[in-house]
Simulated scan of single mutants.
Amino acid sequence: MRAKSIDKRLAELGIKLPEPAAPVASYVAAVEHGGLLHVSGQLPFIDGQLVKGRLGESVTLDEGVAAARACGIMILAQAKAALGSLDRVERVLKLGGFVNSTGDFIDQPKVVNGASDLMMEVFGDMGRHARSAVGVPILPLGVPVEVDAIIAVKPE
């Protein structure tokens, strides 16, 4: 995958990174320290609109997967803003996925696959990662999914 730049790979996949979303509270979007980039939980924006709803209620599984993918795209946008280039990504180490879902909804892992599959599409084997997929009763701003990341980075 490293034979070409990640920007070229994104273009091949038809992915245009959005402007990184500003934090909605007292935190920063990303912190680089000790060879790691910690990206705060990202919310799903599709076509510039914040996606809202709950899995098992008003959001279908397919819509949840698309929302998780949108979170992954925002993770990439935040990483690029923090690092200057996604070519500095050495490996995606871990994603944490939180799914706003009803008590009887059990497909949280399938939802978070939207972000996981994106990382593997973009980075190949370096996008394979450890992961959590947790059901929660509510998320900020009423979104259906939130995803954070830990990424190993190459020095500048």
Score class of each variant (00 low, 15 high):
S85V: 03
A130L: 14
Y27V: 06
G53F: 01
L83C: 11
R128A: 15
L93S: 14
Q42C: 08
D7T: 10
K52I: 04
P144I: 08
K52R: 14
A81N: 12
Q108C: 14
E90I: 05
I106V: 14
G84N: 09
L76T: 02
L93D: 13
D117P: 01
M120W: 08
A67K: 00
F105Y: 15
A133H: 06
E12K: 08
K80A: 08
Q108K: 09
E32H: 08
M74V: 05
P155M: 09
K16V: 14
R54W: 06
I46Q: 07
L95M: 05
A130S: 12
V28P: 02
L17K: 03
K8G: 10
D148E: 11
R54T: 15
R88C: 10
A22L: 15
I46V: 13
F105V: 06
S116K: 13
L83G: 09
L139T: 01
R54G: 11
E121I: 01
V136N: 04
K110Y: 05
R128T: 12
F105T: 07
F98P: 00
S40L: 11
A30C: 10
I138E: 15
P137T: 05
E156V: 12
D117W: 00
P109T: 04
K80D: 09
K4F: 10
L50I: 01
G34Y: 09
I46E: 05
D117Y: 02
R128L: 12
D47R: 13
E156S: 13
L83S: 09
G56P: 06
D107P: 07
G72I: 00
A30D: 02
P144L: 10
Q108L: 07
N113L: 11
A66V: 05
I106M: 13
A66M: 08
R128D: 12
I138G: 12
L95H: 01
V92R: 01
I75C: 04
A115H: 02
G135V: 05
A68F: 03
V65F: 03
R128G: 12
D107C: 15
L86I: 02
R131H: 14
F105M: 10
L86C: 07
R9C: 07
G124Q: 06
Q78F: 02
R9M: 11
G53D: 02
V92D: 01
I73M: 09
E32Q: 13
G53I: 01
Y27Q: 04
A3T: 13
I73R: 00
V143K: 05
R9H: 07
